[in-house]
Write a protein that binds this DNA or RNA. Structure first.
Lengths: 178, 178
DNA sequence: CTTCCTCCTCTACAGATGTAGAGGACTCTA
DNA sequence: TAGAGTCCTCTACATCTGTAGAGGAGGAAG
């Protein structure tokens, strides 16, 4: 599908060069398509951005389904997989920042994690699940950001390794404690 | 000082329009200076970016000095102040993302928080202060991100209020617990 | 075969952008 | 007052970017 080819190329570009690298022609080149292709599918730049953010959201949807028997472990594995798929996650951050001055994007990027986190907090018997869930979400977000672009990116264990998952799991477990 | 005027305008621009909005001429206009001024002080775009990131780092330096008698409280207040200075913090995130494909920036943005966090963890008697400090840093980073651009930006208490600081303090306290 | 329609490629163009340098205004020194 | 040096403004230009539309290739329908 041409459309997906284009949005995938856009995601790679954004990850590698930032939003500034996202131009119609750059996407054409990156996707190996003739000039004008991207412009034909997404006439305006805004449409192009929305296109690739939608694609990101689609792909992310599938990942979030924690195993109730091993909450911490499954979450740790999910986070680790996001570290491994570095480019997609970087593109997601770029999109979140973009959504700051481009609010339509917010509705595309569903923030379902929050309700899930509240549910988990409830399950584990927190007194104030709403707040505990929020803090938990914040912590996960931070863990990911810290390891992907923050100080932890140069210090922590390499993503995709057993050690990385173990480290993450320990952190998640601590955050889950009432 | 012309130079600071320019870098400050750059920071505002980046916060409001993202890295893409950062052009020599846009900075000129934003700073109310005649066209060409920014280009004279920072001939290349790379220099301009490094300039504003340096400015950010300078300004941030001053903020980070936790009160040993009220670690959680002082950290909470610092984070809240970063939420209040929304634009500066947004620009910082944009810069961190930029540093991903522009490594020279990393050396400009000192990641001193990590050592500080380790010190705090040691002070509070954690067994593995190195790791505890890392997790703590991650949590703070996440708290900030979550409240600034994540789901918490639409849900949490308004930055700058007593309630905001209280909420943050509770979260920080929990994260500090061994 | 002809007609129509969709999908794609190519070309066009106004405006923005990065970067460079000429030259003026101003300041300091002697 | 003259000269030198610094700081700033203006102009120039090649290149890139967003967006539009003309027109061709090829398949479907008659």
């Amino acid at each position: 599908m041409r459309r997906d080819l284009i949005t995938d190329a856009a995601i790679q570009l954004v990850a590698e060069q930032g939003m500034r690298g996202l131009t119609h022609r750059a996407v054409d080149r990156r996707a190996g398509l003739p000039e004008g292709s991207t412009s034909a599918y997404f006439r305006t730049r805004k449409a192009l951005i929305e296109g690739f953010v939608e694609r990101l959201a689609d792909q992310e949807q599938r990942d979030i389904t924690p195993d109730p028997d091993d909450v911490a472990g499954s979450i740790a594995r999910t986070i680790d997989s996001w570290l491994v798929e570095r480019n997609r996650t970087l593109a997601r951050y770029a999109a979140m920042l973009e959504a700051t001055h481009h609010p339509e994007l917010k509705s595309i990027m569903v923030h379902s994690p929050r309700e899930q986190a509240t549910a988990i907090a409830k399950m584990l018997g927190h007194e104030d699940p709403e707040r505990a869930g929020a803090h938990f979400t914040a912590f996960l977000e931070g863990l990911l950001f810290y390891r992907l672009v923050g100080a932890g990116s140069t210090v922590g264990p390499a993503p995709g390794t057993e050690e990385s998952v173990r480290d993450l799991k320990a952190a998640v477990e601590k955050a889950l404690r009432p």
